[in-house]
Design a protein around this nucleic acid. Structure first.
Lengths: 205, 205
DNA sequence: GACTATCTTGAACGACGTTCACAAAATTCG
DNA sequence: CGAATTTTGTGAACGTCGTTCAAGATAGTC
């Protein structure tokens, strides 16, 4: 027989599943407490036994998305041979393209990672912050191969910059408010940017 | 005596003023129809004689923000002497730093330029789209000086990429969800990125 | 000044997240 | 096992939101 705690944990998972599906299909605005309750077969108020509020639910969905993104980037950088100076730029390009592909295929879920704001003065939990940090590691490793002479702090900062720059191209490129960019063009744009930055990094001062 | 149309136009301006103030101070979530009605001294329903819905209001505020941003970038690039190959990179840096400064000083208003989503399948009006395009011109001009040999289309694409990259660094840097970046560091990060890209652009293939 | 068209009003509507008194169920203990 | 007690589930109700609309106030026209 299932204990109460186990059933609750199962229901919590169902709830996050349903929330993830709702956001993926209809965006953050499509996330409705009443729909979720009906979907997982519980009363409206019971949701608040599983999560504190909708913000926490969005945060948990974001956590999943971040984990899948991390896996996708790992897969992209793991394809080639291990550390090699010649292919460092290629690996950075592969990671950037994987980031773009993930964003495109998980558009709504990817967006809330950056656009979701907590209600009022609520603080983002520590685990959510530290999760985001791990993303930079996919860039830091190839970058360390590319720039073995730079200080660790400098490479860390450069990772952040590189990630942000690629993120910006992806974010603006996938924004339908501006004129839509075709897939191929966006990919080329990203590869061009990464190679450009790599060339700048290794060019003589 | 003031005609009806003139009074309406005046009220519409008051409404946008009030909406702009509300968003600047308390974010998009702080924009409430009832508060606006009280602020400009009209009935709740009267708002819908001035704008179709809240989406249009947000769009109009965004239009103002875009105009102010355009002016800020113009001021930044106009300080130096006119077209000169030596200072092209400096001008691009100046524009990027001005963009960052504007975003920082108008954080909430700047955000809705990118984060606001229209309700359902509503289409963004043409004027809102074309407004955004004019932003790239601040980058296209110095870039044309820097890369006189490239085709126009290529430079246009490069402008878009450069803008997006800087935008990404600013967006991630000002995101308080991640660890806050100090002003000075962010400025340095941006200058570094722009110079890096310029170096990559002018470096031998 | 009377007639018509237009605008203004605020109560009402439906939808939302959240709460809460109460009922049901599970757990504890004699 | 059954009674007492704690925990959990329930859905109606609350407050707030954007939006609508019948009715009253106002402006425009001859």
């Amino acid at each position: 027989m299932t204990t109460t705690a186990a059933r609750r944990e199962r229901q919590r998972t169902q709830l996050i599943d349903a929330a993830e599906k709702a956001i993926a299909e209809r965006g953050l605005a499509g996330l409705k407490a009443r729909e979720l309750a009906q979907e997982i077969g519980c009363a409206l108020g019971a949701i608040y036994n599983l999560v504190a509020d909708m913000d926490e639910l969005v945060l948990r969905v974001g956590s999943r998305t971040l984990a899948r993104l991390d896996a996708a980037l790992s897969a992209a950088e793991g394809e080639d041979a291990p550390a090699c100076a010649d292919t460092a730029a290629d690996r950075l390009v592969a990671v950037a393209l994987a980031y773009c592909a993930f964003a495109r295929e998980n558009l709504q879920l990817w967006r809330i990672l950056f656009e979701h704001r907590m209600a009022e003065g609520a603080v983002v939990p520590d685990w959510a912050v530290s999760e985001q940090m791990t993303l930079f590691r996919h860039i830091l490793e190839p970058l360390s191969v590319l720039l073995p002479d730079r200080a660790e702090a400098e490479r860390m900062l450069m990772s952040r910059t590189l990630f942000s720059a690629v993120h910006g191209v992806v974010a603006i490129g996938l924004e339908q408010k501006l004129i839509a960019v075709p897939h191929r063009d966006l990919d080329r744009q990203i590869e061009g940017l990464v190679r450009l930055i790599c060339r700048g990094l290794t060019a003589p001062a």
